[in-house]
């Protein structure tokens, strides 16, 4: 589904070039769920933007479904940390936005949006504005909007980091059960080791910026809804934690002292 070869991304800034991603190689199979974890500023968001075609890359190859990545690919859904909802549209209009931009017929829009909003328990709130919803509900609206376009690739950038622990677990469960209903390819950026282990079939660890991949591990426990109460979960979390800490720039720390 995703094939990234030697991807390098540079930004132009005031003081010259800044390398955000440096020769990244990554493959994600169709229907696989891949969690990406790494220190702040290592280029995780940049990677998602490249995959959604919003940021162009300087070198390397990026293939989505065997085609070079392009903006506005119809079946790629992007879900961002602060939900990307439009404050001036109510839940219903936010949900059908993708459908109406893609010029689906009004009856089809209605049918799809109503079904998805009901599935996510948002139908009664369809006339509410985002400002009237809790953070968890807003993120569910963002998920509903993404689902309307039947995506086969979900790109999620720290989607639950602004939520309280209970809401976060509830939404993590929702993502898992949605994935089990219709397995789509998922790329989930997260700062939370537990979230990476819970939602990542594959866990990819990035080094501090410029980002390179330092570890790419298979998670044999993925898909187990009860995982969080098992000792294997904590063993894997600890493994990921030590991988993350191994990637820290010790030289810089030393020179500061």
């Amino acid at each position: 589904m995703i094939k990234i070869k030697n991807l390098t991304v540079e930004y132009q800034t005031f003081n010259g070039k800044l390398t955000a991603l440096d020769r990244v190689n990554l493959e994600v199979k169709k229907g696989e769920s891949c969690a990406i974890i790494g220190p702040s500023g290592c280029g995780k968001t940049t990677l998602l933007y490249v995959l959604s075609g919003l940021v162009s890359h300087n070198a390397g190859n990026v293939l989505v479904n065997r085609e070079p990545v392009k903006a506005k690919r119809k079946k790629t859904a992007l879900i961002l940390q602060d939900y990307g909802l439009l404050p001036w549209k109510n839940v219903w209009d936010n949900t059908v936005l993708g459908l109406s931009i893609r010029k689906f017929s009004p009856s089809l829009q209605k049918e799809k949006a109503a079904g998805i909003l009901k599935r996510l328990g948002l139908y009664e709130f369809r006339n509410y504005y985002p400002g009237q919803l809790s953070g968890g509900m807003r993120q569910r609206v963002a998920i509903a909007r993404a689902l309307t376009l039947d995506p086969d690739l979900f790109l999620m950038d720290e989607p639950f980091s602004a939520l309280d622990a209970i809401t976060r677990e509830e939404l993590q469960g929702l993502i898992l059960s949605l994935w089990q209903e219709t397995p789509a390819t998922i790329l989930l950026v997260t700062h939370s080791i537990e979230e990476a282990v819970y939602l990542g079939q594959r866990i990819v660890v990035f080094s501090p910026g410029p980002g390179t991949i330092t570890a790419n591990i298979n998670n044999p426990y993925f898909g187990d809804i009860m995982l969080k109460s098992k000792p294997e979960f904590y063993r894997l979390c600890n493994q990921v934690r030590s991988l993350l800490e191994g990637g820290k720039p010790h030289e810089i720390r030393k020179s500061k002292v």
């Binding site: 919003l54 903006a71 506005k72 119809k74 859904a77 992007l78 879900i79 961002l80 990307g84 931009i101």
Partner: peptide, 13 residues
């Protein structure tokens, strides 16, 4: 907000 623009562009706008 840039995130809003990115989100809406990714919907095909």
């Amino acid at each position: 907000n840039r995130q809003i623009v990115s989100s809406v562009v990714s919907l095909g706008a």
